[in-house]
Design a protein around this nucleic acid. Sequence first.
DNA 1: ATAATGTAGATGCAATTGCATATATATCGG
DNA 2: CCGATATATATGCAATTGCATCTACATTAT
Lengths: 146, 146
Amino acid sequence: MTKSDEPTAATTRAWVGLMRAQRSVLSAIEKDFKAAGLPPFGWYDVLWELVKAEDGRLRPFEIEARTLLAQYNLSRLIDRLEKEGLVRREAFEEDARGCWVVVTEAGRAMRARMWETYGPSITRHVGRRLSEAEASALAALLSRLG
Amino acid sequence: MTKSDEPTAATTRAWVGLMRAQRSVLSAIEKDFKAAGLPPFGWYDVLWELVKAEDGRLRPFEIEARTLLAQYNLSRLIDRLEKEGLVRREAFEEDARGCWVVVTEAGRAMRARMWETYGPSITRHVGRRLSEAEASALAALLSRLG
DNA sequence: ATAATGTAGATGCAATTGCATATATATCGG
DNA sequence: CCGATATATATGCAATTGCATCTACATTAT
């Protein structure tokens, strides 16, 4: 490895910190979800993207881009959400290969119920550890890596 | 949910950014590992902790604390590393419940070989996107969440 | 029109993870 | 010393993930 490819100490600390912070906060949040008897954390993102979207519907590939889920994982996550009645698949008329994923009323209700745990959990595990200015600065820096 | 539990916009952006940045960079790095024909990314951390440790050995619970791996996941990860000859388990004399995990020469060599891909990968996906000062600031902020 | 290529999404199968619990000590209170 | 409790690690099993590939339809070039 040539010298210029070697990460600087600060870069390495940033990357290791990113992994550790994410794991640590995520596992704390997942613990809160479990304690509240909620479905898996990962369901939230998909439901939220659908709720935000016009008509509560998105194509799978759109959800994929927004959530960074792998295609095959999303496909099966939709299966599970559908089995729970939180979303339903509908035909996409203009292209018979595709489909819509539509959030149901139960899905909207579940999203809202999850937020009641999720919101405070974010506050506890992130907000309480940083000032407003720090949170802003962190968000700005992280957006450079997305 | 009471008002005070609701995360601020900056806190939420920080958390969402943390998830997205970690997923995005991790998946880019994993792609580099695969392209180089290396074993799974997760093996690196364990090997590295062992190489850093005195005598190249640690107790499983010590690795667990350093890597944030779940106990049952680490137990089976050690199985896999052992099967590849990268580590070996040795008896821990003072407490028959425990064991040592010792990195082998092959394990040290593999760690070094992985770094040849990993180092440049960190540089490419993290270092190149931030100035030194930004990387430092990011590391400092992230350390507050660990 | 047709063959080649591209895209959306699903799926079989093996590997990994999570959960609950097991196993084998160790330690502690009486 | 003895039973109760705690600790270190392993493991059976179900759920999830990753990989490779499949199906079905769409688009493009000839």
